[in-house]
Amino acid sequence: MTNAIEVRGLTKRYGDVQAVAGLDLDIRQGEVFAILGPNGAGKSTTVEILEGYRSRDSGEVSVLGVDPARPTRQWRSRVGIVLQTANDAAELTVRETVRHFAGYYPNPHDPDEVIERVGLTAKAGKRVRQLSGGQRRRVDVALGIVGSPELLFLDEPTTGFDPEARRQFWELIEGLAHDGTTIVLTTHYLDEAEALADRVAVVARGRIVAEGTPATLGGREAAKARVTWADGSVETDTPTRTVLELSRRFGGEVPGLTVTRPTLEDIYLRLIEPSAN
């Protein structure tokens, strides 16, 4: 399988701050890859370098076989970007905006199909100003995908969404991934990464500190389970045996029984602790 993105030894410094400190990354073609990390970890800087917005100090970067420090129109037409904050074009309608942006690309999707796909057909004639936050975000996504990109960057796409809107948004992303679009997602929501991503990477202190599938990140699958009941709690490698013993002791039902493995969030918080390495 070929890589859509390859990064070797990437560095970027702002004054005294080493934002990115020798970062390596491979993102395969067609996968959904989530980049997690606290604010200031170098996540946004890295993504903006990949998007061709920012220069780097050193390292090798290839995005769809091109160095993003020298973006061409051809390359831009293969990459879709959904930015974190945009409040532009408020006076245009959804359809006008999507149609206009389709005109920038050599092989655009049909604008009305794209509007349908992001679920805005009923709002197509409305001015962007009149949309809710979640609907606006869908316009952003429509503009990101209208050029039929091979690679799509999504920067914290569901911040400020209500749970219902987030579920709908996830379905949209799953649909895009299903069509073979490579998707690079940054997010603060661990459940979002778990629901969408084939693989995740955690960025801290300007480096990747862990990488893997959501189920195995940071040794999650091998971690002990915690069995908790009404008046006790224990960490164990053999939770089934513990539950059986408890059941025998209580003579059937165990009051207040739960069995949990560390969540992705538990693993994540451990990984980004300042002392961890």
Binding site: R73, Q74, S77, G103, Y104, Y105, P106, N107, P108, H109, D110, E113, V114, E116, R117, V118, G119, R138, S148, Q168, F169, E171, L172, E174, G175, H178, D179
Partner: peptide, 23 residues
């Protein structure tokens, strides 16, 4: 947001020219 089963169709082959600056 409905999820359509069919992929959105690409309207043309991959090597169409870029739209002109003037246009």
């Amino acid at each position: 947001m409905t999820r359509t089963a069919t992929a959105v169709t690409r309207t043309a082959a991959a090597d169409r020219p870029m739209p002109s600056v003037l246009r």
